[in-house]
Every structure is written in structure tokens, then in C-alpha cells.
Write a protein that binds this DNA or RNA. Structure first.
Lengths: 226, 226
DNA sequence: TTTCTTGTGTGATATTCATCACACTTTCAT
DNA sequence: ATGAAAGTGTGATGAATATCACACAAGAAA
């Protein structure tokens, strides 16, 4: 394990913020800080899960093999845990995580994490709140996506990326079109066509991988109509 | 609140099994046991959530208004909590719950539930495990359903009901075809056609609302092919 | 650079499925 | 029991989108 200072880490999770000094000391001894490059696999579906992963910086995709191809389940931006369900719901990873931008990840021994839950109620509570919020977010998306058509879902995703991940109408699009297809549940070609449409109607603009949302209103309309 | 005995309740959640005697006493004073008939609304999307709901007996559907119609997010069978994410993830219910068979539900004051989490680490841990397992289940379904076609999804659901809810190849189907459509994300008519097909090819048999799975192998094949 | 791989744009075609329409059946309340 | 309401079966049609096919572009590696 590399030596690092958890207590003064500027990227603490809301759960970690309630840890006591002695707990930080144990944490430092039982966690490892690792750097990943864009495209690197962080953990793999099917492998044994012995660590909880905390995304300190960067962006990660959570994905899983579906019946015909890969399905991207969620995009996680720092700071956030991203391996809790797969660690405590099943011994074997039920999904993979891959870095889609350079990231730093803190791996926390799952026995230690479990002890924090058992011994620090506030820590447990914060973990529960995070799990609950994620689940609500997922539900919202399921409900939307199963009833919208492709342009609507793509529009929703673009807005979501702009708002919650990059917090700017202009950003470097972190996925290939194929990945975006795996995320929204469609084909690569359909994504390409939808993006071309948006681009032709000046709703968005592409400069290489940089995307700018020009008409947010139109995007929102398309997203809502379905 | 009706007087009832929680400590000796035969339908305890795995979290409740680790409560201490004094905690049971508080629980009895801050929980209410309510009976619902098939079709009754248990709590409603948009309302303030002040209780955690525990399904003691029966079956419940969790559903949410989508862009064009209702979406059924999950079917919950007793014993299980079913209002945790909406209670701790957001003050306002993000989904509704409706009884699809006669049920008994135990409502637990959410402040009390929170105190159990804060003060009883084992309780918190069990809650976390349940949340994690649910999330993994949702992911699995999400990955499958976004890549399968309608017959495959319907087949999957029938197998799931038979296996995990009724634990028998013959059971009284608890949903209307319209509801099954809202669950798998398709139209009522498509569900009707798929069920007719299955019935014609002697894969399943209907007697009124009673369904029997005749050829489980075929169903599984259809489910896997997508 | 050149070459190789990976990603992208776009037409033509086929398929799945939603929608509309309407008859029929079951359930429920009066 | 009788009528109204809710649920179901099934054809005809059209729309959305997957798939196939291929050209082209961009990036990585030699």
C-alpha cells in the first residue's frame, strides 16, 4: 500500500467526513491510491471483489455484459464510491468499471469498510443515503428511457453530462459514439444519425471531440417529448 | 398506532433480526401495521415520505409516472422493505407503491429507522446489504432488457415470477396484461400477442388468471436469445 | 511518413413493434 | 341479473430503428 494521508485528503466522501482520527489512521493503512489512464479497466465483472472503490478524481463508466453486447449502466464522476453494491451485494463483481478519463481511485479494504459501517453509525447512514440517491436516479432513468425514443434519450444524456458532470455547455465528449449507444441502449449508427441531426439543426456543435450545446431549449424539448 | 408485537413477529427483516430488546420496544411504539387489499395504493409519488415501509405479507408493485405512461419499476414480495430509497434519498416520494395482492405492511417512523442505523451497526449493515442486492438485481435486469426483444423480456419475467415470487411453475398471475406491459416496457397489445404465441406453442397454459409453465426450457431459450 | 486500427457518416433494406380499430369476454356494482 | 367498466385478442397499418454495407476520417504505432 502506498503511503498517503486520508485525513487531509481534499476529496473525501460525505461518509468519510464523519470518520474519527483513529479511524483515519486505520484507513490510511488499509487503502491504496491508484492512478488510471483513460481506457484502463479498474475492476472486472466476474472477478472477486475485495475492495470498495472510491473515485477521487476523474470519470468512470460502470458496465456489464448484456445478452448481445456491453451495456453501460452509469457514468460516475468524482467524488463518489462506485463499487459498493458489487462488494456488499455479491462476492463476485456483477459489473466492470473502466476509466473514461484519467482518474485516481482509492481502494478501501472491504472488511475495514464493513467495520466502519458496524462501528460508526454516521458513516453507515451516509453510505445508505448515497446508495438511496443512486437508486432513485437509476429509477428515474429507467422510467424515462423505456418510454422515450432514441433522440429523446440522447438529448437527455447530453443535458445530463453538461449539467451534472461537466457543469458547462461546452465539454470534451468522453465517450465514443459506440459507447454512447451502449449507454442509451441503441445502435452505434442510430447515435451517429441523431447527433448529425442535432448538429445540422444547430442544436449542438462539434469540433472534434468538443461538443457545445447551442440550443438547450430545443434539446430539452426533444428530451421531454420522447 | 395499533398495538402489536414486533419482537415475536414471524416476518422480521434480516435487519430487524439484530435489534435488541429495548429497540423492539421503541419499534413497537413507533410503527403501525396496516392491511391493504389488492389494488390499494400504499404510498404515492410526490407525497412526503415520513415512514419506511416493510412488506410483511403479500406482493407490491413499485411504479412511477414516465413521460408517456406508468412504468413499473419492480415487483416486491414479502418479506422486504420497499420504501427505503425514497425515504432516505429524497424527502418526497419518487415512486408509488400499490398492493397487487392483499398485503400487510409495517410502517416504521423514519426518524426511528434512522436512529437504528446510527446506533446499531449490524442493523445498518443489513440494510446496506439489502440495498446493494436490489441494485445488482436492477442492473442485471436493466442490462438484459435494453438488449432483448419483447418475447425475451416477457419470458424472463415469467420465469422470474415462477422462481422467485411464487416458487412454483403454476401460479395466479398477479398483473393485468397492461401492467405486464408497463413492467417490461412495451404495449398492452404486444404482451397479449406474445402470451398468445406462448400459449399456442404450448409453452405456457392459461386457465383464467392461473398460468402454468409447461416448457420451461423453451421459455429459457426465448429469454436468452433475446 | 506509411500503415493499421479504431472510429464515424450515411444510404438501402428488413424487422420489430406501436398504434388504431373493434369485437369479445370477464368482472363488478347496483 | 343486468348493465357498465375493465380487461383481452387480433387484424391492418405505419413508424422507428436495427442491420448490412461501405467509404471516409482520425489516431496510434512502426
Amino acid at each position: 500500500m502506498n503511503t498517503h494521508n486520508c485525513k487531509d485528503c481534499p476529496f473525501k466522501s460525505s461518509a468519510e467526513k464523519v470518520l474519527h482520527d483513529d479511524e483515519f489512521m486505520v484507513l490510511e493503512e488499509n487503502s491504496a491510491l491508484v492512478t488510471f489512464k483513460k481506457g484502463d479497466l479498474i475492476f472486472k465483472e466476474g472477478a472477486l471483489s475485495t475492495n470498495v472503490a472510491f473515485l477521487r478524481t476523474g470519470i468512470v463508466k460502470i458496465h456489464k455484459q448484456g445478452p448481445t453486447k456491453e451495456k453501460i449502466l452509469r457514468i460516475v464522476k468524482a467524488p463518489s464510491y462506485f463499487g459498493i453494491p458489487t462488494t456488499f451485494g455479491n462476492k463476485i463483481n456483477q459489473y466492470s468499471a473502466t476509466s473514461i478519463e484519467d482518474t485516481t481511485v482509492c481502494f478501501i479494504d472491504s472488511t475495514l469498510f464493513r467495520n466502519f459501517i458496524l462501528e460508526n453509525g454516521k458513516f453507515a447512514y451516509e453510505v445508505i443515503v448515497e446508495l438511496c440517491q443512486n437508486e432513485l436516479q437509476d429509477y428515474e432513468r429507467y422510467a424515462n428511457q423505456s418510454q422515450k425514443q432514441i433522440p429523446g434519450i440522447v438529448a437527455e444524456r447530453l443535458i445530463c453530462m453538461s449539467d451534472t458532470i461537466f457543469k458547462s455547455p461546452r465539454f470534451i465528449f468522453p465517450l465514443t459514439q459506440g459507447e454512447l449507444a451502449d449507454l442509451v441502449g441503441t445502435s452505434r449508427e442510430s447515435v451517429s444519425r441523431v447527433l448529425s441531426d442535432f448538429s445540422n439543426s444547430k442544436i449542438i456543435e462539434f469540433k472534434g471531440k468538443e461538443i457545445t450545446i447551442l440550443k438547450r431549449d430545443s434539446l430539452e424539448q426533444i428530451s421531454q417529448k420522447g
